[in-house]
């Protein structure tokens, strides 16, 4: 499923495929043509992806073929022992979590779950969690604190679920409690924004000692469409809002919100999932090695300082 700006790549790719098929059948050999096209594909990729703006980044961040939480778990963890339920109401599928062994490190993994198929997405509510999801996540994080396990939190959500039941069961309270309790967790908390960082729904499991972000992920206080509807009175002006809101990884790093950008392979995570998953694994392990040396008190103080610096008032 190519995005609009990816169409030139898609055309070259389908021609390569055609020639490869012909190669198998016919007596003629197209190897020279194929390698020429492959070179062209590489240079076109570089050109296309170096020119993308914030709105194109939003499209990539939401791409259905980007690796999802389950792909990261499968690719990086030799074991994943999923844990279920918030002990209050239910077992939300918008956020999942459990014990995991990630490249030999025993950790607690939590994160938003989107689906690949319509059915999966309906179960997971398109990655929009309910209060039960946030409460389950907090239960698992408190368990991680008890067992002294580092917490790895994967963020990929359009936002917290806006529904009648979600409000009745306290969506606001659930997120608020997570923000408060995450700030004093005595274990390392590594947050990775892998796709969409949707507002309160994202930060509700996103208070970390470090926040990592894939190079084509976005993280915003409001969706560009929502912002355009309110401030431009026209949802179609989302590309302008996307630029104004400064939601790309580079923007967030310069604003002090993101600590490390994980570069995606050329063409984006949706065109090379395996390399993306490996890069995320490398980044997590790098941070784990550093953070595991810090005492509980230092971890709590460092996390407090990280957030109190954001928006600190400086006299001009």
């Amino acid at each position: 499923m190519p995005l609009d700006f990816e169409k030139p790549l898609e055309e070259i790719e389908s021609r390569i495929d055609e020639l490869k098929k012909l190669n198998e059948k016919a007596d003629v050999n197209f190897d020279t043509e194929i390698s020429a096209l492959e070179r062209k594909l590489k240079s076109t990729s570089k050109r296309v992806y170096s020119k993308i703006g914030p709105w194109e980044t939003v499209q990539i961040a939401r791409h259905p073929e980007r690796p999802l939480l389950r792909d990261y778990i499968q690719g990086l963890c030799s074991e994943f022992l999923e844990l279920h339920g918030d002990r209050c109401f239910g077992d939300d599928q918008g956020i999942i979590g459990g014990f995991a062994t990630l490249r030999q490190h025993r950790v607690m993994v939590i994160g938003h779950q989107k689906g690949k198929t319509i059915e999966e997405n309906i179960t997971a509510n398109f990655g929009m969690a309910s209060p039960d999801g946030y409460r389950k996540a907090m239960r698992l994080m408190n368990l991680a604190a008890k067992y002294k396990l580092p917490i790895i939190s994967f963020i990929d959500t359009p936002g917290a679920y806006p529904g009648l039941e979600a409000e009745a069961r306290g969506q606001a309270e659930a997120i608020a409690r997570n923000l408060t309790e995450m700030s004093t967790l005595p274990v390392p908390v590594i947050v990775i924004v892998t796709g969409e960082g949707g507002s309160g729904g994202a930060i509700g499991i996103g208070v970390g000692n470090v926040v990592l972000m894939l190079s084509n992920a976005v993280y915003s206080v409001i969706s560009p469409e929502g912002c355009a509807t309110i401030l431009w009175r026209d949802g179609d002006r989302a590309p302008e809002a996307a630029a104004a809101l400064r939601i790309t990884a580079d923007d967030l790093k310069s604003l002090g919100v993101v600590d490390e950008i994980i570069p995606e392979p050329v063409g984006g995570a949706h065109r090379n999932a395996d390399a993306t998953i490996e890069a995320v694994g490398d980044a997590i392990v790098g941070q784990l090695r550093r953070l595991k040396k810090m005492s509980p008190k230092r971890l709590i103080d460092q996390r407090y300082d990280k957030y109190s610096k954001i928006g600190r008032f400086k006299k001009k």
Partner: peptide, 16 residues
């Protein structure tokens, strides 16, 4: 929203 992600982060900062 005019302060984008900086405003979102104030939720975490104040709760801490």
């Amino acid at each position: 929203m005019h302060e984008g992600i900086v405003s979102l982060m104030q939720m975490a900062k104040t709760c801490a």
